[in-house]
Amino acid sequence: MQIDAVLEVEAGDPQIAIDFLVDNINLSKTRLKDLMNKGGVWRVDLQDRRERLRRAMTDIFVGERIEIFYDEELLSLKPLKAELLHDAGQYSVWNKPNGMPLSGTDWGDFNSFERAVELATHGERECYWLTPFDYQAAGVQVLAHSRKAASQLTEQFDPEGLKGATLKYRCDVEGDFNDEGECTTDLEDGAVSTRFSKVRFDARPNRSVLEAELITGRDDQIRRQLSALRYPVVGDEDYGQNAEEQGLLRLKCVEVRFTCPMTHETLVFN
């Protein structure tokens, strides 16, 4: 069962979110509260600002729009769990499971990495995403929670060339990969460099398993570079081919090494 509806709050309608939904949507109050909590209800205010509406007792006003996206099958899924490996306050290190999307959709965000981080930090910390990390990938992910920490970590995870930090990935690609060693490729935003090694080649289904160590660290570097080399990462919806038929993105960050900006201790996560 799916519901995709946009309702405008009119004079005489209940001015409490959950009461308005109960009056207008043919779902129980329990299911509606669950939908709100999981991010499938949106509020568009009088200034046309759009945000998820989670709190059942939120006041709503005449002229605002309430958007409802209900997918019974989606909501029945058991959410994946991201593991917090290290919490330094100013930054955190996570293990993101395979299949967990980075962001939510209109239909909810309860299974997303962004929501997992928000819940774990009680929504009290800002999140700064570091360019070299491909946050669509599974595995080790590092987030900064202050501008200072983001700046200090970016000095090590410099997009122009990692300095004292190590970032290694493993991925499955289409075809028999033959570009081992340090590989430099010209992309739209400049030249990128990655050190590739082939773990194995499987003739059926014609795929290679690679290890990749970043030398530079541009946005989505590994996926973009491998696509340019005509060895797209399996399951890559952004830069690959026939991603819908391939299933999950086969890219995982398997090792991160850097110096803690506060204690100056060398940290390794794998």
Rank of each mutant, 00 (worst) to 15 (best):
Q2F: 10
Q2E: 13
I3K: 02
I3Y: 05
D4L: 06
V6W: 03
L7M: 13
E8F: 07
E8N: 03
A11S: 14
G12W: 02
D13C: 09
P14Y: 05
Q15K: 06
Q15W: 03
I16M: 05
A17D: 06
A17S: 11
I18W: 07
V22N: 08
V22S: 04
I25K: 00
I25L: 08
N26Q: 05
N26C: 12
T30S: 11
R31Y: 13
K33S: 02
M36N: 07
N37C: 08
V44G: 09
D45C: 03
L46R: 08
Q47D: 14
D48A: 12
R49V: 13
R52D: 13
A56R: 01
M57V: 15
I60M: 09
V62H: 04
R65G: 14
Y70V: 14
Y70D: 02
E72Q: 01
L74I: 08
L75N: 01
K81L: 14
A82R: 00
L84Y: 04
L85G: 03
L85C: 04
H86V: 13
D87Y: 02
G89R: 00
Y91W: 10
V93F: 01
G99V: 10
M100P: 12
D109H: 04
F110E: 05
F110D: 12
R115E: 15
A116K: 04
V117I: 15
E118D: 15
L119H: 10
A120L: 13
T121L: 13
G123T: 11
E124A: 13
E126V: 14
Y128F: 15
W129F: 14
T131Y: 04
P132L: 03
D134H: 02
Y135C: 11
A138R: 00
H145F: 09
A150S: 11
Q152F: 10
Q152G: 07
Q152I: 09
L153E: 01
E155D: 09
Q156K: 05
Q156T: 09
D158S: 07
D158W: 05
P159I: 02
L162M: 07
T166E: 12
Y169C: 04
Y169E: 01
R170Y: 00
V173D: 02
E174S: 13
D176G: 08
E180W: 06
G181V: 06
E182M: 11
E182C: 11
T185F: 05
T185R: 01
L187M: 09
G190N: 05
S193N: 12
F196R: 04
D202E: 13
R207E: 07
S208T: 13
V209Q: 03
L210Y: 01
A212P: 15
A212G: 09
L214I: 13
L214K: 00
T216D: 08
T216S: 11
D219A: 05
L226Q: 04
P232W: 01
P232G: 02
G235C: 04
G235I: 10
G240A: 12
G247I: 09
K252A: 08
C253R: 00
V256A: 03
V256C: 06
C260R: 00
P261W: 00
T263H: 03
T266S: 02
V268N: 00
N270D: 15
